[in-house]
Simulated assay, not measured.
Amino acid sequence: MLKGAVLIVTLLLAGCSSGGGAAGPSSVGKYEQTWTKGYSSTTCDEFINEMDPHQRFVAAADMLGGARQADGGTGLPGDSLVNSFKSGLDQACEPIGTMTLTDAGAALYLTDRSSFRP
């Protein structure tokens, strides 16, 4: 059962949008992603060291929203929950820089599902 849940959440997180234009954060909307690499191809090292704060927030919101949708949620999670998920990604990514962002996000969501689900 847990293995199936991990697969479903990982697939949902991998399918989250991650493409955007080259405009800087000051000219983009709150949830517009300017990171052009797919999250399933983005490493934790890139998340921590190469993504700017806006890109990291949007990635966390995008992945958390996708995972919550799989749990029956609708709409976007609030900023405080997104920031909590982003902080969790920071901690999950720190020890294993080569892990993909989607793997880190799936593990985080499933580990702390009671906090993140709708």
Rank of each mutant, 00 (worst) to 15 (best):
L76T: 12
M1E: 06
D112F: 15
A14C: 07
K30I: 09
T10I: 00
G75Q: 08
Y109K: 11
L101H: 08
L108W: 10
I8L: 15
D112A: 15
G105R: 12
R56F: 01
R113S: 13
S41F: 08
S87D: 05
M63V: 05
R117Y: 02
Y109C: 02
D103K: 12
D52G: 14
W35C: 05
L12E: 12
A70G: 13
E50P: 01
A22H: 10
G29S: 09
V6E: 01
S26D: 04
T42Q: 04
L76H: 01
G4C: 00
T111W: 02
Q69G: 06
G29F: 05
I8P: 01
G75P: 09
Q69D: 05
A59T: 07
L81A: 13
G65W: 02
G97I: 11
K3T: 08
S17G: 12
Q55T: 07
V82L: 02
R56K: 14
G88F: 12
V58S: 07
A14K: 12
T100L: 05
K86F: 00
D103Y: 01
Y31G: 03
E46A: 12
G97F: 07
V28R: 14
G97N: 11
L101W: 09
S27L: 12
G66V: 05
V58H: 08
A60H: 07
G97A: 13
V6R: 11
D62A: 13
S115H: 04
L12Y: 14
D71F: 14
S114D: 15
I48L: 15
L7N: 09
I48A: 11
H54P: 01
M1H: 14
M99Y: 04
V82K: 03
R56V: 05
S27Y: 11
T10V: 00
A60W: 11
S26R: 02
L11S: 12
E46Q: 13
L108G: 03
G38S: 13
T10Q: 11
G97E: 03
T102H: 02
A23H: 12
G75R: 06
F85K: 07
A61G: 12
Q91P: 00
L76I: 12
P25W: 10
T10A: 13
S41M: 07
K37L: 07
A61Q: 12
P95M: 08
T34R: 14
A107T: 12
T42A: 04
E32Y: 00
R68K: 11
L101G: 15
A61L: 06
T102I: 08
I8C: 11
K37H: 09
G65D: 03
G75A: 01
A104G: 01
T42Y: 04
